[in-house]
């Protein structure tokens, strides 16, 4: 298709979609409206289950199946990335060279690493109470480990990153979510039922299974993101095709 034809089709299509969408917007209840039937029910249900953060209650209790699907998407795409970015027959690994890091950068990164790690763990742990949770905290934990790459070099990162272990942790997070959900079955509950005591409102142990599912997500996300980034870093730093390598030696 020529560029000109494509632009015509695009313009017509875009115009049509814009008209359709704007007409729909005119019929929408105006921004900031007060009618939220499902939302109001969700707030009541969360309070009844002693979960202070309603969003966590929705994610890990009321609509926990969505989160299982979401977790599986993450799991599947981490696995997919591992498969897609594998080292192929025409590629070799190159030892990354030790890098020289400015002392100020190193000091900052080495200081920031434990702080970020702790923040991440805190965010995971308080998911049912305050904003945050397994997903947000997991990403922060995974990112914090990569500060080591900035502070020292790629080899230091590789030393604290036994990838096999992280892959197992990733799978364990996924399996744990399924198992906690299934543990409700013998107790006579439906799948993913909140069968544990709900605990005292606004404490770490409140919300029944919410903290457990939250922790499972935290483990999976942290491990999954580490594996994901490792694959990209591998490609960018270590894996070279044979012709690249020949060129590098020349």
């Amino acid at each position: 298709m020529t560029m000109r034809l494509r632009m015509w089709v695009l313009a017509l299509g875009g115009l049509g979609v814009a008209v359709l969408y704007v007409l729909a917007c005119l019929d929408l209840p105006s921004f900031g409206g007060h009618r939220h039937p499902y939302g109001d029910r969700a707030v009541r249900a969360a309070l009844a289950r002693h979960t202070a953060n309603t969003i966590s209650s929705v994610n890990f209790d009321q609509r926990a199946l969505d989160t299982l699907g979401e977790e599986s998407i993450l799991f599947g795409s981490v696995l997919g990335t591992v498969v897609l970015l594998r080292q192929t027959r025409d590629e070799d690994r190159q030892q990354p060279e030790p890098a020289r890091v400015a002392p100020s950068v190193r000091r900052y990164a080495l200081f920031a690493l434990p702080v970020t790690l702790l923040i991440g763990l805190y965010i995971v742990a308080h998911g049912q109470l305050s904003p945050g949770g397994g997903f947000q905290g997991g990403v922060v934990v995974a990112t914090s480990l990569h500060l080591l790459y900035i502070a020292v070099d790629y080899r230091a990162l590789e030393r604290i990153r036994p990838l096999g272990l992280y892959e197992v942790a990733d799978a364990a997070g996924e399996a744990a979510y399924v198992l906690v959900g299934a543990a409700a079955l013998p107790a006579g509950w439906a799948f993913l039922g909140n069968f544990l005591p709900y605990g005292t409102f606004n404490t770490l142990a409140s919300g029944g299974t919410v903290p457990l599912l939250n922790a499972a997500i935290g483990v999976e996300v942290a491990a999954g993101v580490v594996v994901l980034l490792a694959r990209f870093l591998d490609q960018a730093v270590e894996i070279v095709s044979t012709d690249e390598e020949a060129e590098g030696r020349a």
Binding site: F75, E167, A171
Partner: peptide, 15 residues
Amino acid sequence: ITPMFGAALLVGAGR
């Protein structure tokens, strides 16, 4: 969940 769990098991024990 049966296939989901199977996938987790395969990845976890894959090595």
